[in-house]
């Protein structure tokens, strides 16, 4: 074992050094700044990162939502997940904090979603904030939180991916190419997709948090 560690350490150090030297000596490039800037007037949103994520490279983002969904499906397929967390947090601190925190998180999440069109933000940031609020919520109220009915939960998880795909196919049928939007509608469609994606991402994060609970707690 010691030998393995030494060898792997030496090899990893060599790899890191090699990478560092090569990266150090790279000339700086302009990357894709100029093509992005040139297309911004047709992007439907004003923030370049959101434009890249949801318009120019929308297919990446769609597949990434697929990865997120697949992670839940995979975690579920491992069998036995408890619908409620294993250990409730005792005491009044958690519920009290939550009463203050969850509304703030919801407002922040919705703001981030909206801000994404012109400033840093967007579906993923919003979904992460809402997801975190959801995780806290489940942690604090393990007894009286009813498990949502399964079809509805599935709909919520799949909504982002399904809507994105539907819009993508519509784009192909209408003639703007797969994953394409008619330019005048781009802004509105992106906002709708992002809203659905936010809901799905937040739910997915909560589901993933719950999904891997130990088997013996099933019931």
């Amino acid at each position: 074992m010691r030998v393995t560690q030494a060898v792997s350490g030496a090899l990893a150090a060599m790899l890191a050094a090699l990478l560092a030297v090569v990266l150090w000596s790279l000339p700086e490039t302009q990357g894709l700044r100029d093509p992005v800037a040139a297309a911004m007037d047709q992007a439907g949103v004003a923030h370049p990162v959101t434009a890249v994520l949801l318009n120019f490279r929308a297919y990446d983002t769609f597949l990434e939502l697929g990865v997120l969904l697949l992670a839940v499906l995979g975690a579920w397929s491992l069998g036995r997940h408890t619908p409620l967390p294993a250990r409730p947090v005792p005491g009044p601190v958690m519920p009290g904090t939550l009463r203050l925190l969850v509304p703030v998180a919801v407002v922040t999440g919705v703001y981030l979603l909206w801000a994404g069109s012109h400033a840093p933000g967007g579906a993923f940031q919003a979904g992460a904030v809402l997801g975190a609020a959801g995780v806290l919520w489940v942690l604090s109220r393990p007894r009286d939180l009813p498990a949502p009915p399964s079809p509805l939960l599935r709909l919520g998880l799949v909504a982002g991916t399904a809507l994105f795909l539907a819009v993508g196919i519509a784009g192909l049928v209408v003639g703007h190419g797969f994953m394409g939007y008619p330019p005048p509608w781009a802004g509105a469609l992106i906002l709708i997709i992002e809203t659905a994606a936010t809901i799905s991402i937040a739910l997915t994060l909560v589901a993933l948090f719950l999904g891997g609970a130990p088997a013996e707690r099933e019931g």
Binding site: F56, F178, G180
Partner: peptide, 15 residues
């Protein structure tokens, strides 16, 4: 080749 979303490379993704 098909530029997805009507965006041509290098900006977009091509099939």
């Amino acid at each position: 080749r098909a530029g997805l979303g009507g965006w041509e490379v290098p900006l977009g993704i091509a099939l």
